[in-house]
């Protein structure tokens, strides 16, 4: 996968996109990658979720390695 990075989806996000994993163009920073994600999947922009990069919830900008494991984690409330 040249210059691509895959992102795992959970909860209603995978339902929305109809996939458990999506592949987007790789970007070197978190914020750029976020922009790229919203560009390719604009329906995600209105959704509530947090980014996990390498098993860590990430809010601030950071450099991303192409091997990074990225997941989009929406909140659940059912009980």
């Amino acid at each position: 996968m040249d210059n691509k990075i895959s992102i795992k989806l959970f909860g209603n996000l995978s339902e929305l996109i109809n996939a458990h994993e999506i592949v987007i163009d790789f970007k070197t920073t978190f914020f750029e990658l976020k922009d790229e994600l919203y560009l390719q999947f604009p329906m995600l922009e209105k959704q509530e979720f947090v980014f996990a990069i390498n098993q860590k919830i990430t809010h601030e900008n950071s450099i991303i390695n192409q091997n990074a494991e990225i997941a989009l984690l929406p909140p659940f409330s059912g009980g």
Binding site: F10, H20, I57, L73
Partner: peptide
């Protein structure tokens, strides 16, 4: 940590939570 568990695919991710 927060554990995300998908019981269809038996996929889990365990995510560290840091002070936001």
């Amino acid at each position: 940590e927060i554990l995300y568990l998908n019981v269809i695919k038996y996929e889990t991710v365990k995510i560290k939570i840091t002070k936001k």
